[in-house]
């Protein structure tokens, strides 16, 4: 249990660093802004208390905001994502529930399950984030296009990172 908490704290720090030191500096084009850090919320254990879920999401978002100079925007989007996570987990739960001790990762539940689960969370996160950033409806469709393209890139990054992490865990 303690081990699990420490692992998540390390993952938190690593993801924030990767996001603000590497991904932030990658120019992938005007419309593409992948946000890998949301992986932290996606792979939190099933048993995580709900208040801890929201609080850690807030802390994660605020940490990103500090580096992006976007006070509150990432925090708002990440907290929203954390809020809908239990509902999405319930929606995709197997008939007899999630096994104890497992985590919402490709390793335990397979790629189709993970893609639909992470896909919904990431798309909603990006939707909230980009619309808060733009803050008007006059650019509705161009913003929507950015949401879709960026979500696809974030999902790709998340899946790739999952494979890298899992291989390390197995070793």
């Amino acid at each position: 249990m303690i081990n699990e908490i420490i692992r998540n704290i390390i993952r938190f720090i690593l993801l924030v660093l990767v996001q603000v030191l590497i991904i932030k500096n990658i120019e992938l084009g005007r419309f593409i802004n992948p946000f890998l850090y949301v992986l932290f919320i996606i792979v939190l254990p099933f048993e995580t208390p709900k208040w801890l879920l929201l609080t850690s999401a807030f802390l994660l978002g605020i940490s990103i905001d500090m580096f992006y100079d976007t006070a509150g925007m990432h925090a708002a989007a990440t907290v929203f994502m954390a809020y809908i996570r239990p509902g999405v987990l319930k929606l995709f739960s197997p008939r007899d529930g999630y096994e104890f001790g497992t985590q919402p990762t490709i390793q335990y539940l397979g790629i189709p399950w993970f893609l639909s689960y992470a896909g919904i969370l990431i798309s909603l996160h990006h939707l909230v984030l980009f619309y808060i950033e733009v803050f008007r409806f006059s650019e509705f469709f161009s913003t929507f296009f950015r949401v879709i393209v960026s979500s696809i890139f974030t999902i790709l990054l998340v899946v790739v990172t999952q494979y890298l992490f899992n291989r390390k865990a197995e070793q």
Binding site: K50, W51, L54, T55, A57, F58, G61, D65, T70, A71, G72, M73, A75, A76, V79, F80, Y83, P86, I132, F135, R136
Partner: peptide, 28 residues
């Protein structure tokens, strides 16, 4: 419904921060 209310409180804090610290949103 503590989960929902906690969510509401944190989101309010976030939106407060957004409007307070970002000139564009504040102007809007």
């Amino acid at each position: 419904h503590n989960f929902f209310f906690l969510f509401l409180i944190i989101e309010t804090i976030c939106m407060y921060l957004v409007v307070q610290n970002n000139y564009y949103q504040r102007a809007k």
